[in-house]
Design a protein around this nucleic acid. Structure first.
Lengths: 221, 221
DNA sequence: TAGATTGTTAATCGATTAACAATC
DNA sequence: TAGATTGTTAATCGATTAACAATC
């Protein structure tokens, strides 16, 4: 890598997805430390606690930190928390809609943790008339037909799909038509989207496979 | 990090985690095709439909397929389905326990899709007395105290954690003490486990961050 | 045959780890 | 100072993509 990255605040473009995925873990760990106002922490300590490599942690922290760590002293906990939160954009709230109020949809609607990550579910929809008007986690289930109008009115950019696999592509298409730029897909289906739209698949079946595989291998021993 | 596996000539050891994660998508796609008994499909067609690279699909299929594809003809759909299912071990059922019958726990207990992947939840536990005896998705919630005995009696190898982050490590420890070899962790917490135990983190917050980041970048345009 | 499709080998890419100099 | 800890550069590792020969 050539040019030294000056700490001018334009770190954003250079951070890997893997690093981003680890940031929430760092943040939680740092918040759970209850040191005083000037408390410090070293990358080594974080690495040991989270079971990661020291250098990896140092690189991750360097990528988001506005203040360099000090040899022998480490980082100020407060600084790190502030930097990670700033990077994660906790203070920029993102409005989203959710389509599919089945078991998983209801679980997400009831989940209190999203607020901490700046996610606010601005509308919940389902195609089942029996659910209209029902309240889940403070959100009223609305008819699918009202989804496009709400998306456009509130300029929704994030759509959450918790419908059965068969309906996922259709729901996704309607979201994208109405301005959604990123789709969080919990349906076990591949979604085709135009260039520039991000689909994040949350395939719990795939994770399950990894686990089963580990167990199957273990049985050979 | 896991010890290197001996190459015993079996295909099992050589398949990457990434490949394993894609297999469920292939399987779903193949099952959704309703060709006749002798229907064939090419890796190119699969790649195009799922938005993957052709070579990637070919490598993945080569890794699990018992029959080589035939130039110009491709693969028999039936063969691929059978091979992927065999590899994924759909026919070897895995018993699991779930601890934490909150919103997410209930969603998982109610989810019908696990059976297709060979997962059977053999017991559901919670520390909240108010939930004891309550039935969710055909599973009765049992007191935490009964967890160790059930794990040992049924020789449970897979534990699902859907408790709050604060309680996750403690629950994990008790699972491992009682024979669990793989942990599916839905709590936003890092779990420390002994060598040889697999932790699969299902960190929805991390996915959310990836999405928010995409949106934030898009806004610059 | 001609062309589509396969599977393999080599190149590339991204992420992690190792080695090491700098510094408080 | 001595030693812990930082940040950087180089090496390694794993996964994907490119190039290409084989084959029906």
């Amino acid at each position: 890598m050539e040019a030294n990255e000056k700490r001018t605040g334009k770190t954003a473009g250079t951070i890997s997805k893997q690093t981003i995925r680890r940031l929430p873990y760092y943040l939680k760990y740092l918040k759970d430390l209850d040191g005083g106002a000037g408390a410090r922490i070293s990358a080594c300590a974080i690495a040991a606690s989270l079971g990661l490599s020291e250098v990896l942690v140092r690189k991750d922290l360097a990528a988001v930190s506005s203040v360099a760590g000090r040899p022998r002293l480490g980082f100020r906990v407060q600084d790190l928390i502030a930097d990670i939160e700033r990077f994660l954009g906790y203070h920029n709230s993102t409005a989203a809609i959710l389509v599919g109020a089945g078991h998983l949809g209801k679980a997400l609607l009831s989940y209190r943790g999203f607020a901490a990550y700046g996610l606010e579910i601005a509308g919940a929809f389902d195609a089942d008339k029996g659910l209209y008007g029902k309240e889940v986690g403070g959100h009223v289930i609305l008819p699918m037909q009202e989804m496009p109008a709400l998306c456009r009115r509130l300029e929704i950019k994030l759509g959450i799909i918790t419908v059965p696999a068969d309906a996922a592509q259709q729901v996704c298409d309607r979201m994208v038509e109405n301005g959604v730029r990123a789709v969080w897909n919990f349906a076990p289906a591949h979604l085709s989207v135009p260039e520039g739209i991000l689909v994040q698949n949350e395939n719990i079946a795939a994770s399950l496979v990894t686990l089963s595989n580990h167990l199957a291998k273990g049985e050979n021993k």
